[in-house]
Structures are given as C-alpha cells and as structure tokens.
Design a binder for these strands. Structure first.
Lengths: 213, 213
DNA sequence: GAATGTGAATTTATTCACAGCA
DNA sequence: TGCTGTGAATAAATTCACATTC
C-alpha cells in the first residue's frame, strides 16, 4: 500500500473494503489463489470497475492480464483497514446487548480485544462476559487514561449515551460505536459511528408494500 | 403524503427519514410545537436544504415563512416509512444476539411485533424471550405461510445464514435483516439488509491513526 | 420578514471504455 | 489475448440561491 491521505478515499469505499476482505478471506480458506475483478464483482453483486477503482486509491495490487492474488489482496486490504495490528475495545453498558456483544466471537477473530466492560449496576460489576470483566462506571476515565483504549462500544440506555460519549472523549478515547438510538455529540477528533437497529427496520418497512394484509 | 413512486426516492433519503423521525419525536416529547429546517438541521448536523429536499419527495409538509409543525411532521414521516401500521417480526436463531434483540424494547416501541423465534437447539425450544417463544426451526415454513410474517431477523451462524434466507424467501417472507457476516442471496422481490458489526469496527480502524502506541 | 419548496449549480460516486502491460 | 488501472463520461446526491407563500 502506497502512502495515502485518507481524506482522498471516498467515504463509501471504506465499508466496501470490509466487504471485499470478508469475501477474499472466504476464497482463500477455500483454496482459491487468484481472482479477477470481474469474478469477485459477480460474487458480491457489484461492478468490476468499482472494485478496481476502490483498490486504486491505495496502490496497484493486481497483475494486468492475470488478476489478483487472493492472499496478497487479503494482506493489502487488511493493512488498508488498519487490521494488521490489534485494537483494544471496551464496552460501556453491560445490559443485554452489551453482554451479547462481549461474547460475540466475530470481534476477537478480527483482532479486536475486549479489555474491559463498564456498568453502573452493582449486580453485574465483577462479572465476566467473554474476555470482559465488568468494572464500575466510576472507574471509566481512570481506566481509559491508563490503558490504551482504542474503541468504545456504547450500549447504555439512550438517555445516558450522550453523557457517556462525552466522558469517553474527555478521557482520550478516539473512536466510538454507539448502539443507543440517539445522535451523540463529540469533539471533531473523535470518530462516532451509529448502529441503529430500529432505523434499519424502518428502511425495510419503507420499501415493503404497505398494501399487505 | 402525496402518492409517491418509491423508486423516485433516493436510497440515502430513507435512513435520514428515520433519523428525522427520532429527533422530531424527541422534540414533540419536550413540548416543541414548531421547528424550521434550519434549526432541525443544526441539531442533527446536516444541511437545511437537504432536509427540505428529503421531505419534498413526499409532499409539502411545512408553511412558508413559518416552518414545520412538529406533530404533523411526525405523522407524515411515520406514514412515509410505513410506521402507521404494525409489522410482524420473527427472529431466526435464538443465540446470544437473537435473544438480546428479542428483549430489546426499541422494536416494540416502533410498532414491530415479535411474534415468534426459531432455533434448532432443543435446549432453547419452548423458552420465551420478550414476546417471542422459541419454536423448532422445522416449523419455520409452516409458520411463515400461516401467519403474516413481515420481517425476519436472521441471527443464525454465518454458515447457515444463506440457507435460512432461502427458506424464508421460499416461505414468502419479503424482508430480512441479516446479522450474520456473510452476503446472502435472495430473489429480487425479497429485501435484504445487512447489519455487520465487524464491518462497522473496520470503518473505525481505517480512520484511526495507526501510529498510536 | 421569514422560511419553505425547488430548479440550477456543484460536488461526489459510479460506470464506461480503452491504453498499457503481463 | 486478457485483465488491470485510470482518465473521461455519466449518474446520483448535495448544496446553493431565489422565487414563492404565509
């Protein structure tokens, strides 16, 4: 991967890289050694030029007339996405969703290390879910300042989400995945992404024919 | 809302409608009766013209020189999104994520009714989570054909997701929210949306400065 | 006077189409 | 010959700017 200014990469390209990576890992696991942009495009229902252009923001990963080496591409895209290192993750909010996420294997498989969880309820403090032991929410700032916390998953009730993100930002956490259905505020240099299940459902109902029984 | 061909509505407008709706409900709950596109835009960090244009695909909801009546707007957007009726939802896969979703209050609050869950493990069949009683996966098609199932949330292991979606489609389910980290195949007339947590995390790590400790 | 609704202008993203290279 | 990599063309989305209406 050549040196890239991330602002030159279209925002829509990034989630597509994750999609390519998943499919390429699957191909590699199946023993496929080479693939063309055309064939890859077919399996994920996309335009082949789209894929080539997405790669082109980062360098030249293929061989003209031949295609792409799957193993090389997996390495390159992993590197583009910052997945060639591990990232420390905390979960704030040890409710149903937080504890389910803590035990979700998908995270650790991608190099995300759950290093702690936080909750305000004495009933769960001390319990462990996956690799995450629940600490008191009062220790949040201390922990974030002492340990290298890269990403926080926020699964607290909606009313507390904004305050929680503020505390995380103040304690130096630079990336937040917010599962509470509210828009949260954070300084410019803190990345916030929203995961919103009822929003997803609404996008489905929009397209569902409302004349159904 | 005037009669609208949904294909004329840009795809990106739909999730924004859900966002507007949430904020407007919050404003209504706080007793705010009127709002301008400028003020609404500020609270959700968007361009005011964007909001007005999004509304304009569906009709004229405001009053020139005055702004929008919050209550009216809530009703109009709810109607646009198909939220003025209730939708029957099933969850296929009663693992950690499936059961967490089943007990998540956000769904029922928006008019989504969890009518059943399905799993292959005898250990969970018969158990109830929220309003969802777990049935045998063998009964999936029968149930979908007899009851009106509008949306299926698929929380089965990745290896089974594609087959599960195929069965749902064959049984007449027209919308699927897939939580398994694989691209699933479905007929043209079946809507599939992907919710992918590790993808979201990767979009964060891309932008995180990789020079961190 | 104030804010909507919307064509026109701009920006961003996708797709085409072909030069360049194995 | 076959497929990448990429400028050019097209399409889509956003933003501007203003006529219109209350």
């Amino acid at each position: 991967m050549r040196n890239v200014d991330k602002r030159d990469v279209p925002a829509v390209t990034v989630p597509r890289l994750a999609l390519y990576l998943r499919k390429l890992r699957e191909l590699r696991a199946r023993g496929v050694e080479r693939i063309s942009s055309k064939d890859l495009a077919e399996t994920i229902d996309l335009n082949a030029a789209q894929i080539r252009k997405d790669f082109s923001y980062f360098g030249e990963f293929g061989t003209r007339g031949v295609g792409y080496e799957v193993a090389r591409l997996v390495d390159e895209i992993s590197h583009c996405l910052g997945l060639d290192r591990s990232w420390n993750v905390i979960i704030v909010g040890a409710g149903l969703l937080g504890t389910a996420l803590a035990r979700y294997r998908g995270f650790s498989e991608q190099g995300f290390r759950l290093v702690a969880m936080f909750d305000s309820s004495a009933a769960v403090i001390g319990a462990s879910y996956g690799t995450g032991r629940v600490r008191s929410i009062g220790d949040l700032e201390d922990f974030c300042r002492k340990e290298q916390v890269d990403i926080a998953l926020v699964t607290v009730p909606a009313a507390e989400a904004d305050g929680t993100v503020g505390r995380l930002a103040a304690a130096g956490v630079k990336a937040v995945l917010n599962f509470a259905p509210v828009k949260v505020h954070a300084p410019e240099d803190v990345l916030v992404r929203q995961v919103d299940l009822s929003s997803e459902l609404m996008s489905l109902t929009f397209y569902l024919d409302r004349e159904q029984a």
